[in-house]
């Protein structure tokens, strides 16, 4: 967690001295024999997820599928953006969508109208999780004919924090930020904006009615993730959509040309 206040950082430390002795907290454990045996572990906590993500990535590579992980806060317009994007991509690219929501199948119903196969994941079946993990994607893939897919788009749970931490095997991560959310979001959620490969600044059709300062967002992005591509667009009006779709096509072509591992 990003905490700028040094005293707050110190407060987060455990308070145990690094002497290897059991603390008073643990007195129930053999306090009279104050020794303990340390066993080296040195493992990433999310090892299990990362291994499953690597397996997904291998499967995508074997099937020639390019995968996008689309993340944002709730209500940024991800589903509308996908509806419009699918309508323009579908003639020449075979698309499929995995949609994550805590509840309801409304997004899947909307996206299914595009003709693309859509798998809805409701995470309440997994304990109301706030993100999609690699094993959830692996399970969802069984509902899609992967031999008939060029582009898989995963619409992650609306949340600017947790999904950034979980690799699902995607090729590119894209964050959607709508202008109604305010200019400060990149600075407030730096991990998300560091981890993503492109930013879609959505709902620019609303700019005449807002005090939103686009320049501030662009400056903030340049500080947090220098060089990150930013696409200013309106999923509703279609303005700016072509540049974003051209980026997707360029990314797909780049993956096809890259030597497969």
């Amino acid at each position: 967690m990003w905490i700028f206040d040094k005293t707050a950082r110190r407060r987060h430390h455990d308070g145990h001295k690094g002497d290897g002795l059991p603390s008073r907290h643990d007195t129930a454990v053999e306090s009279q024999r104050s020794g303990s045996r340390e066993i080296k572990v040195v493992r990433r906590v999310l090892d299990a997820n990362d291994m499953l993500a690597a397996r997904n990535r291998e499967l995508f590579a074997a099937k020639g599928i390019f995968t996008l992980n689309l993340m944002s806060s709730p209500g940024s317009g991800k589903t509308t953006l996908l509806e419009k994007s699918l309508a323009r991509l579908m003639p020449d690219l075979r698309c499929a969508v995995i949609v994550g929501d805590i509840c309801t199948t409304q997004d899947a119903d909307r996206l299914a109208a595009s003709g693309a196969p859509v798998v809805q994941i409701n995470t309440d079946a997994f304990g109301g999780e706030c993100h999609l993990a690699a094993h959830v994607i692996e399970k969802a893939l069984t509902g899609i004919n992967l031999d008939a897919v060029d582009l898989l788009i995963v619409e992650n749970i609306g949340n600017l924090v947790c999904p950034a931490e979980f690799d699902i095997g995607e090729d590119r991560r894209v964050v959607v930020l709508s202008v109604t959310e305010g200019e400060d979001k990149p600075a407030k959620y730096p991990l998300m904006f560091r981890e993503c490969d492109a930013l879609l600044l959505n709902k620019i059709d609303l700019l005449p009615y807002l005090d939103y300062d686009t320049a501030k967002t662009l400056i903030s992005i340049e500080q947090i993730h220098p060089g990150m591509p930013v696409f200013q667009l309106s999923a509703k009006s279609g303005e700016g959509l072509e540049d974003w779709l051209a980026w997707i096509r360029a990314q797909i072509n780049a993956k096809k040309k890259a030597p497969s591992s």
Binding site: G35, S36, R37, E38, R44, V45, E165
Partner: peptide, 14 residues
């Protein structure tokens, strides 16, 4: 980072 470095186990009772 998000890593487990080590675990410490209480020495066995006599």
């Amino acid at each position: 980072e998000l890593e487990i470095v080590s675990i410490e186990i209480a020495e066995e009772e006599p």
